[in-house]
Amino acid sequence: MTLHVFMIVILPSLCSAAISCYGDHGQPVDWFIVYKLPRLDHTSEGGMKYMYQDHTSEGWVRGAALMNSTESAVGRTLSQLYQSSQSKNVAYVLYNDQPPANMSNAIRGHTKGVVLLDKQQGFWLIHSTPRFPPSSSQKYDWPSSALRNGQSFICVTYPYSQFKEIGTQLMYNTITPYDSSIPDTFSGDLPDLNSAAMKKQVTKPPWNRQVTLTSAGGKPFTSFAKHARFGDDLYSGWVSEVLKSDLCVQFWLNSRGILPSNCSLTYHTYDIQTISFGSAINFSSHVDHSKWCVTWSDSAGWACIGDMNRNNEEMQRGGGTLCSSDPIIWKSFKTLVSKYNTCE
């Protein structure tokens, strides 16, 4: 009797994979941070270079590609959106107070980001870039308007259960969604994410919300989200008090009504003036549109990446920041501060 053995071969390219942040070398990662550098030269690559870190890099390393490439961490991550946006098995929200094809929205929150998930997990990408990314019906690209200035990104992979909390944070942020899809199979579990995608917002106090979000890999991040009616600066009026530390804050110094460094409260808030990635890369905050802060202490503290400036207008707008107490992340941001404004 002849025994026939049948082998089933599963090709990796055909296997479905859970949605995730993707690192610079094509691997799924629990989180990454990208710092898009300003245009420091006039070469063809000027304005598209970036610094990168994740849990394996031990701090900043040079980006493996360019920001307009699908080989970059941001490009690899967002490629999942363009490949799966027609699927009923995924949900997504793209939001930006300066959307790619529309006029700016100065009434709603000063917020920018992307949420993409399936029923297992997904990512929340928070960034500072106007006119970015393209809608899901298009393809990944980098806007020419965002070449000149620095920009910041933080991507975290979260299990499905965390998107209920993320949806609530986006309600506080009062996001401006410009492309979204929340199929019925998601909206029942994630009512606030569905509401945020329809431009709804919180309607009663408290007007700010802090929550711990735990990544798919078990790493805690603290999310701060404020509504316009909070009526105060995100950093000096809230984050510094919660983190119990002085803060150095990087934000767009060219907007109207900039808030000066504040030493009137228990914890001081300082405006950063100059950024340095070592002797070879130095630039002014006036060409840096990124939004981040770091606790100004001798011992390991916190670093936060978000989407808010320090100015009079944004005291009356929604927005937020995402913070980590990882000592390597903290040190990587603290060493960037070359000069900051002391209080007058």
Rank of each mutant, 00 (worst) to 15 (best):
V115K: 04
K164A: 15
Q162A: 14
D118W: 06
P134N: 11
W142Q: 06
P133Y: 09
R108Y: 10
W142K: 03
C155S: 10
Q151D: 09
H110E: 12
L125Q: 08
M103I: 13
L117F: 12
V114R: 01
G113W: 00
Q138V: 07
P133F: 05
G150N: 05
I126W: 02
F123T: 07
K112I: 05
I175Y: 01
G167F: 07
S145C: 13
G122A: 03
D179H: 02
Y172P: 03
S145K: 14
T111W: 02
Q121R: 13
T168Y: 10
H110M: 11
V115M: 00
I126T: 12
S145R: 14
Y160C: 07
P177G: 00
S137D: 14
F153N: 01
D184K: 13
Q120F: 11
Y172V: 06
F163L: 11
P143G: 09
K164N: 13
H127C: 08
S128M: 11
L117Y: 02
Y178H: 04
D118K: 10
A146V: 02
Y178V: 08
N149S: 15
R108W: 11
E165S: 15
S180G: 05
V156A: 01
G167N: 04
Q169N: 10
Q120H: 12
F132N: 03
S137N: 14
S137F: 11
I182G: 02
Q121L: 05
G150T: 05
K112P: 03
T174A: 13
M103C: 13
Q120K: 13
P183H: 07
F163G: 03
G113M: 00
S180V: 01
S152F: 09
A146H: 01
I166L: 07
P177I: 08
N149F: 12
L125G: 03
T157Q: 06
K139S: 14
A106K: 15
Q162D: 08
Q120C: 10
F132S: 10
M171V: 10
P177D: 01
Q169L: 11
P134Y: 05
S135E: 14
T174W: 10
L117M: 14
S161H: 14
N149E: 14
V115R: 00
S136Y: 03
D184P: 04
F123V: 05
I154W: 06
L117S: 07
S181G: 04
S104F: 12
G122S: 03
P130H: 09
Q120T: 14
Y140I: 08
G109S: 01
F132R: 03
F132Y: 15
V156N: 07
P134S: 08
Q169K: 01
G113A: 04
S137I: 15
Y158N: 07
